[in-house]
């Protein structure tokens, strides 16, 4: 199983739009960010399955992340 990680805006630079990280029991968004070399302060919006997520929450199989840097409004 893999966790699908959708990256946006400048976070795509050098990483691509979608990254898959092997799932293991206890995997968290914080682990994934470290793995992708993304600092917490560069994350403005972290969504787990489209809902506000936490860095330290334990992910379940089938969960997906959407990660945005500080970007914008309209």
């Amino acid at each position: 199983m893999e966790v699908k990680v959708k990256l946006f805006a400048t976070l795509r630079d050098g990483r691509g739009k979608i990254v898959y990280i092997p799932f293991f029991d206890g995997i968290t968004p914080a682990y994934i960010l470290k793995h992708l070399n993304i600092r917490h302060e560069d994350v403005a919006i972290l969504l787990v399955n489209g809902r506000d997520g936490e860095f330290e929450q334990k992910l379940l199989e089938e969960d997906y992340l959407s990660i945005f840097p500080p970007v914008g409004g309209g």
């Binding site: 959708k6 946006f8 805006a9 400048t10 403005a44 919006i45 969504l47 489209g50 959407s66 945005f68 840097p69 500080p70 970007v71 914008g72 409004g73 309209g74």
Partner: peptide, 24 residues
């Protein structure tokens, strides 16, 4: 500020398409 200093200058308001869509 990340929004006014980086996001809006680089992408304009259109960057919201993915943000709003990902939130459903």
């Amino acid at each position: 500020n990340g929004v006014t200093g980086q996001g809006l200058p680089a992408y304009g308001t259109a960057v919201l398409v993915n943000i709003i869509n990902e939130n459903g």
